[in-house]
Design a binder for these strands. Sequence first.
DNA 1: GTCTATAGAAGGATAGAC
DNA 2: GTCTATCCTTCTATAGAC
Lengths: 211, 211
Amino acid sequence: MVENDKQTEKKIFEAATEVFMEKGMDGARMQDIANRAGINKSLLHYYYRTKDRLFNEVFEMIFGHMLKKFAPVFDADLTLEEKIRFFFREHITFLQKNPRLASFVLHEINRNPERVRNFIGRIDIGRLWTDIEAQHKDELKKSNIRREDIPQLMTSIAAMSVFPFAARVLVKSILEKMGYDFDDYIEKRKEYAAEFVIGAIRKEKGIREKA
Amino acid sequence: MVENDKQTEKKIFEAATEVFMEKGMDGARMQDIANRAGINKSLLHYYYRTKDRLFNEVFEMIFGHMLKKFAPVFDADLTLEEKIRFFFREHITFLQKNPRLASFVLHEINRNPERVRNFIGRIDIGRLWTDIEAQHKDELKKSNIRREDIPQLMTSIAAMSVFPFAARVLVKSILEKMGYDFDDYIEKRKEYAAEFVIGAIRKEKGIREKA
DNA sequence: GTCTATAGAAGGATAGAC
DNA sequence: GTCTATCCTTCTATAGAC
């Protein structure tokens, strides 16, 4: 049945996504994936040949999905501050729905650098970069952000959003021991992170004007 | 030879630390560890019984070492701003010397939450927390930082320092494609991160004074 | 396309000689 | 304490029936 083919392949892919996200490539077992998909182990190989191929397809999907979440930042017709608020709202909500994603991607990236380079190679980052610079030339100048500071700023923004999820278990443990609720903390972070970054940027201007 | 006992045990421990940091618990092979230590596989079991025990000892050492790096923040006789500058200088330098540490710890933490809870259980976090609050009561009030914002601030500080290393391969790939040097970026981050956070905090005051 | 059975390899762990 | 040899389990992958 052709109907069933797609069904099965999809079920396998979804089961594999779950298991790989939970255990990572090295910790995942083909048997677990088969069980979760409700099919036989051999079928995995019938559809995907090897564990490696299956993992690669899953990883590329997830990593691509994650990078896509950054896209609006590069073309939205918004001011820099609006973009920052927009980004944190969307991105943290995305990670909220996929709490294991950050940790999974970071681990697998470091485990196999080649994969990342392949991926990065396919993107025209130079283009995105100059777009950002062009779009916000005035704002960057007003905030006294030099070209060489852009990597610092970009990674700081990513850090504010990703870290709480990447260190989820640790942060959650500590917060709960102090009587805070993790979900509530994340919800509040959408706004906090935006104001934090905007404040940091405004300050660059302030300090240098005084000097 | 008693001399050699310590020698061997230490060599094993060091080799294990390297291999576990590189491959993670699931990806590490006892054979690799034996090879790197220049001894036989059986000796690993002679000294550490199982892979699990060996891993646990390594993990506890690394995790403990990492947490210790946060200690000065809680008792140093410095102002809040001085502490922030001190922290980033010390902590980023520490991660610079152990570039795989962040990624390793984050992965293993999420893979086995129980381990973290054990560890956290042993620390009197409540005490540390109230110390921080007491030490900087006036400064926190001046910057209009409410008690409920402390988790946001603390995780933001950790994020600024840890993220570039946790996402090392990705950040490095992108920066290099744009003509930046990663090591240079990290070196500059020691100061950038501090000023970024201090700016963000000052701003909380500013915004609310205007309103 | 899906299953059962099994090959084949790898890895953790132990026994026993030295 | 250290090595060689080997056991035993687990896991990926394939062969072959239906």
